[in-house]
Design a protein around this nucleic acid. Structure first.
Length: 739
DNA sequence: AAATCCGCGTTTTTT
DNA sequence: ACGCGGATTT
């Protein structure tokens, strides 16, 4: 029930799906003319400009089906690139409903590049196929040692900032132009650090996220044969969310489609929200120049949102000056007005949201058809607290990353080290895990020994001479560590789960977790480890040939465990960025305040209004996730940096025509009608009490006689004036309090 | 080498 | 307000 696209038309079109080539009855059924045009355009460049809710995903997946069944394409000739794992997973699932997608490449840019490099990287020299992938925190750890070793001040050249700068440089690659160095950092120094960092990556046999793409580009640029092998294999290339691609991704796309020239991209300039990480709108705006005489299809009919929601979103986005006007329209009725709630502070806001959610739930709206969006992750906390108090089930999408937990990172580092003995970052992370008496001093000593001989730490460890130089307990500890890794070496060729189990045994997981911290988190850590094992087993089952290397690659590129679980029964909580591509019957957007949405950082940077306009697009994306109902909230005070500050409503609220908004009276006593369904009793959450007078759409007026059960099973026995006693499931009966 | 203390930055968004 | 990293104790 949750957040999946195009529910409007799922029932149609796919009924006659078949994996075998041949005409598929109904493949084009239920498609409107532009959608049909896009689906059936197989050859040459194709640009699909798709407004929100216009059935874009459906078109892309149907098009793949069309290519297979009508144009005789083989699955292995299909390459579909997405921007996020979520999008890739969803597209694969959708395609699999009618076809065997196993041999298609449906993945993110990063995953595709990792896959290519596993095969080809040795052509570049300096890396082996066992290379590690460094995420942001690995990158920062490496940068820290690089900055330190180069003798620069770590407070001035903070790894995170330096890393951001390097990443910006790699992603834009504007010839001759460097990203501006912020925070008192010096260009010269940054350049030096960057070179040292690149060198360090190479000696660690590692690549960061940006390198995954860049190395493939390098490969394609330098080895036409390899380039052509891939370009000729992929007869049909498609790229989703093209407005979010950066320069490097654009160049990759060019290469990949260079042989057959069948490139279909789709996107929406109004939904471009990733300029900060190098996304370049010119890619989509200049598509017609880059890939001459393309077919251009506009999908402008919205099947998702009620009229008022669409009108409001459109009014908002029209305030952007740098855009092409689109004629979005819908056949849907106007529906409810938007609701704007002013709240006292962030807790009041969260409480209000919890209350509205409960009211909706009592009115028959399942929790998992409701989503709450926010600009920045820290807003999650207050929402969680209040939802928990209100006993509203919720789930967080994205957010705190599973693989960021310490115990998980440690285990993964061990596995990485087993596969890639050059990975010093992993080595340093686990050399004293579990505690074996190896402190910083000893590691420093080993490091300098290794550095002198330009040898990885693990190799230094194998040298008796190096060990001699370590004193006391640390020597024994290091020796033990070395032996452990020796035994772990066999894990390299094992299935992921077996490798992990071997590791858990070797480090005596239970006692490790027990000694890790005596405070609270023990049980949770244990559960996390169990989940990692489950993941590994799942991976082995799904990809029997993947092995430990494949598993490691997978988790390096998937930050959040699983995103949204369908039918989980909970309200979905996520950032506006994570919301892209999803839809919900009810969307609630919190924190519509100046400085927050638009975010002050966005306002500060960039030429002219670029930052502001991107913030507006972000809200536009959020608003257009809603099907039936849209609720916007803001708080007059908010705790920020531990300090209360008073806030102003977002200018974006003024850009929504007032006649589309129903403002709920703000009343200090909390007595406002939650979406007109229930009134909240003072100091409590909305609920029915025995004796309440109620109204039902069908049965009219009555009085509550009895309340039983809870949650989805909550039932009320109501004595109706005209229909006598009825037992009603509160989840479905739209009971209203009557006064 | 481990435990405790203190000060600083943090809060944009993701692969 | 919080967590991390570095510095300072034990």
């Amino acid at each position: 029930m949750v957040g999946r696209k195009d529910e409007q038309s799922l029932a149609r079109g796919t009924s006659g799906g078949a994996a075998a080539p041949g005409p598929v009855p109904g493949l084009l059924d239920g498609l409107n003319p532009p959608q049909r045009e896009a689906v059936t355009c197989a050859e040459g460049p194709l640009l699909i400009l798709a407004g929100p809710g216009s059935g874009k995903t459906r078109v892309v997946t149907q098009r793949i089906a069309w290519l297979i069944t009508e144009r005789g394409a083989r699955p292995e000739e299909i390459l579909a690139l997405t921007f996020t794992n979520k999008a890739a997973r969803e597209m694969r699932e959708r395609v699999e409903r009618t076809l065997d997608a196993a041999r298609m490449w449906i993945s993110t840019f990063h995953a595709m590049c990792a896959r290519i490099l596993r095969r080809e990287i040795e052509l570049l020299g300096g890396w082996t196929r066992d290379f590690s992938i460094y995420d942001t925190s690995d990158r920062n750890a490496l940068l820290k040692s690089v900055v330190k070793a180069s003798g620069y001040d770590l407070t001035r050249y903070r790894p995170g900032l330096v890393g951001g700068w390097i990443s910006a440089w790699k992603n834009t690659r504007e010839p001759g132009s460097l990203p501006p160095a912020e925070g008192g950092m010096d260009d010269e120094v940054l350049g030096r650090v960057m070179r040292a960092y690149s060198q360090a990556l190479r000696s660690n046999n590692a690549l960061d996220f940006d390198d995954l793409l860049l190395k493939v580009l390098e490969l394609f640029d330098g080895h036409a044969g390899v380039r052509d092998a891939y370009a000729s294999r992929f007869r049909y290339v498609s790229v989703d969310e093209y407005q979010d691609t950066n320069r490097v991704q654009y160049l990759l796309t060019r290469h990949l489609s260079s042989y057959h020239g069948n490139l279909a991209v789709c996107g929406d300039p109004d939904q471009s929200i990733y300029a900060w990480r190098g996304a370049d709108l010119r890619n989509i705006l200049d598509f017609e120049r880059d890939f001459p005489s393309p077919r251009v299809v506009k999908l402008e009919q919205n099947y998702r949102s009620k009229g008022n929601i669409l009108k409001a979103a459109h009014a908002l986005i029209r305030a952007n000056s740098a855009r092409k006007e689109k004629a979005l329209w819908t056949e849907s009725e106007d529906g409810d007005l938007l609701t704007v709630l002013e709240c006292a502070d962030e807790n009041d806001e969260a409480r209000e949201i919890a209350l509205q959610v409960r009211a909706l739930a009592l009115g028959g709206v399942p929790y998992d058809s409701i989503a709450v969006f926010y600009r920045v992750n820290f807003m999650q906390r207050a929402l969680e607290t209040q939802l928990r108090l209100a006993r509203v089930p919720y789930q967080i999408v994205g957010g705190v990353e599973f693989y960021a937990r310490r115990e998980i990172r440690d285990l993964v580092s061990y596995l990485k080290l087993a596969v890639n003995p050059n990975d010093d970052v992993a080595f340093r992370r686990v050399v004293n895990v579990p505690r074996r008496g190896v402190g910083e001093q000893s590691v420093e000593r080993l490091m300098s020994w290794a550095l002198d001989r330009r040898v990885p730490l693990l190799e230094a460890l194998r040298s008796p001479e190096a060990l001699e130089s370590i004193r006391g307990r640390a020597r024994a500890g290091l020796a033990a560590f070395g032996e452990l890794l020796g035994r772990l070496a066999e894990a390299r060729e094992l299935p992921a789960s077996s490798a992990l189990e071997l590791l858990l045994e070797e480090i005596d997981c239970d006692s490790w977790l027990a000694q890790m911290d005596d405070d609270d988190a023990g049980a949770e850590r244990e559960a996390n480890v169990d989940e990692l094992v489950t993941h590994a087993r799942e991976y082995d089952r799904l990809y029997p040939d993947g092995g430990l290397r494949g598993f490691l690659q997978d988790i390096a590129l998937v930050s959040d465990v699983d995103g949204l679980r369908e039918g989980s029964g909970g309200v979905a909580l996520m950032t506006l960025h994570s919301a892209k591509g999803l839809e919900f019957p009810v969307a609630i957007i919190a924190g519509l305040e100046e400085e927050l949405l638009p975010h002050f950082r966005a306002l500060a940077e960039g030429e002219g209004d670029a930052g502001l306009e991107q913030e507006r697009r972000l809200l536009y994306v959020g608003m257009t996730r809603a099907r039936e109902r849209l609720l916007l909230t803001w708080a007059a005070n908010r705790l920020h940096f531990g300090q209360e500050s008073s806030r102003l409503p977002s200018r974006f609220l003024d850009e929504i025509p007032p006649e589309l908004i129903e403002g709920l009276e703000h009343d200090r006593d909390g007595e406002r009608d939650p979406l007109g369904v229930f009134e909240a009793p003072e100091g409590e959450y909305a609920s029915l009490k025995v004796g309440d007078a109620v109204e039902h759409d069908h049965f009219g007026r009555g009085r509550v006689e009895l309340l039983q059960g809870s949650g989805v099973n909550a039932r009320a026995t109501v004595c109706f004036v005209d229909h006598g006693n009825k037992q009603l499931l509160l989840q479905y009966a739209r009971l209203r309090l009557s006064r």
